[in-house]
Design a protein around this nucleic acid. Structure first.
Length: 174
DNA sequence: CGTCTTTGACCAGCGC
DNA sequence: GCGCTGGTCAAAGACG
């Protein structure tokens, strides 16, 4: 698992957007941002987000968040209420690879073609016992270079990568 | 042998 | 009620 190499990829731009409500207030984004293994910086127009909680500030950062318009589906009130009960966040990633290594172990359990999109949507579950976090991955129908990732739920365990990092000596990254 | 992916079937929600 | 769509299940096969 080499996060620094991954996040230094110039083709890797990440844009967060609310799949449900306001992600900044609704979700603990750091739970998900740690997938970069570094600090996430957004432009000044949006709120600053950092994954310092996990102590992974190794100098890796992803800048140049895209100006891509968020894709927010219209939902009925009933569906929205149901979704509100879930811990959910989605973001767009400009990447050639669809499944980024976020430190967790995922098990693919489904694949479905999506209406109005030539690309199928893939469904993953966290394979840790007792953890029922799910994620969906699909390519942007307009620009195939973007990957839309949606996380649902909260991990009830630390990422194997985080455990590994915490056990490393202080100067291990230098 | 255990774990994972693939894929068709099934189910529930929603719009008409 | 019916059809469409998205989400999940589970059997089968692949792989290390």
């Amino acid at each position: 698992m080499d996060f620094s190499r991954e996040s230094s990829n110039p083709n890797l731009n990440i844009t967060f957007y609310p799949d449900n409500l306001d992600p900044v207030t609704e979700f603990e984004l750091s739970d998900y941002l740690m997938l970069d293994g570094g600090v996430f910086e957004e432009d000044s127009s949006s709120q600053s987000i950092a994954s310092s909680e996990k102590g992974l500030g190794g100098g890796n950062e992803i800048s140049g968040a895209t100006s891509k318009t968020p894709i927010i589906k219209c939902k009925t009130e009933a569906r929205e209420k149901k979704l509100e009960q879930r811990h959910r966040v989605a973001f767009i990633t400009k990447s050639e690879i669809e499944v980024m290594d976020d430190g967790y172990k995922w098990r693919k359990y489904g694949k479905k073609p999506v209406k109005n999109s030539p690309n199928p949507r893939n469904y993953y579950k966290c394979s840790s016992g007792g953890c029922n976090v799910k994620k969906r991955i699909e390519r942007d129908r307009d620009d195939h270079s973007y990957v839309i990732t949606t996380y649902e739920g909260s991990h009830n365990h630390y990422s194997p990568f985080t455990v590994y990092y915490n056990q490393m000596p202080p100067n291990a990254w230098t």
